[in-house]
Design a protein around this nucleic acid. Sequence first.
DNA 1: GTCTATAATTAGATAGAC
DNA 2: GTCTATCTAATTATAGAC
Lengths: 217, 217
Amino acid sequence: MHHVPLDESTAAPRRRDRDNIRDLLLEAAITEFAQRGFDGASTTSIARRADAHQPQINYHFSNKSELWQAAVDQVFSELDEVIATTDFLGDPEAGFAALIRGLVEFAAARPELHQIMVQEATAASDRLNWITDTHIRPRYEQLSTLWAALQQRGVAAPIDPKLIYYVVIGTTSLMYINRAEARILLSENPANEAIIDKHVAGIVAMLLPHYKPATRP
Amino acid sequence: MHHVPLDESTAAPRRRDRDNIRDLLLEAAITEFAQRGFDGASTTSIARRADAHQPQINYHFSNKSELWQAAVDQVFSELDEVIATTDFLGDPEAGFAALIRGLVEFAAARPELHQIMVQEATAASDRLNWITDTHIRPRYEQLSTLWAALQQRGVAAPIDPKLIYYVVIGTTSLMYINRAEARILLSENPANEAIIDKHVAGIVAMLLPHYKPATRP
DNA sequence: GTCTATAATTAGATAGAC
DNA sequence: GTCTATCTAATTATAGAC
């Protein structure tokens, strides 16, 4: 069944040239991959989200796998920016507290990163090997080392440095991975500033039980 | 292109009657839905996993949605058994510690429950509304209430009772949701007894900083 | 670079033989 | 209850006009 235009002159296909179409497709892909996983996401649906046609995805990204990889690189580069601007200049405890705040704020603003991770990390695959080697392991090692240093100073909870990664990522991000569920349970947006502040304070107090944030004089 | 049997007598289709085929299909579905989500999972692949034919799924479960619902009910009923056998008879702190151990052991043995949850909870849907109302909210409320009581007793970390659910589920389960990743990072199976013991001890110490498990006299 | 048309494959569901 | 055959719809990728 074909679309029958009321008037042929108005049916002329509109050419929607946009200089940012690659970014629009990428953002649409991030959303789709986060919500439905690699297999569940469809390039047709991604294109529609960007008000584009499905073959434009193959033109700009060759194939679905390269689109997925570009999406992953994009969200991790955004995380890099947050980490890079985190103030580690004070004492290690204040630096760790700032890191926790950065991670919670990032998870609230960009839940897609962790959503894509859980979609991929449920089963072994080439995609998982790539993302783990490229993006995850350096962060895992850094956090493990930082945590061991905090334990040396006697301010950190007795969590094994090999396991601290999953405690930190689990607490800072699960509420945002499951944000559609959290919105139902909390009856409000879990990304609200008040929720974020409470969540950060709770996590820091729990992980650094002997640390008291400096109060302004 | 059709399969040409070497000998017609050996090509007779084998009728694989099994009285537990429904359970086999259900178990295969749990695995597939956990790893690839509702849209990513295919009934053909699920049937193949159970060494059955794709139409048998429609025969035993009507359609894909009812298969999914049966899979969810199954894993939550298994969780119920674990919770039901948890010993809450001692003091509240010992009961909470036992609950944490039960949750970690369950996540290690049945990561599919939480994997299915994160697959579904990323976006609003009828499936999410059903699973949240039916299975999640009662547990969320129970944990919130239990936590408030522990805080009254002065032994619990300063986590908001409205947020404790995500702290508990995040810490107890993320390493098992991401078990394929964790296996790479830890260079061992995160479901190993030694890892489980360490993880439980860390979480309990962090959440109940003033609680010291009773040592045998 | 955008767009239509379409090829090649796979999806979930149903009909009917056994 | 199992199985083959098949329908309709949806998938990713490609060809070629513009």
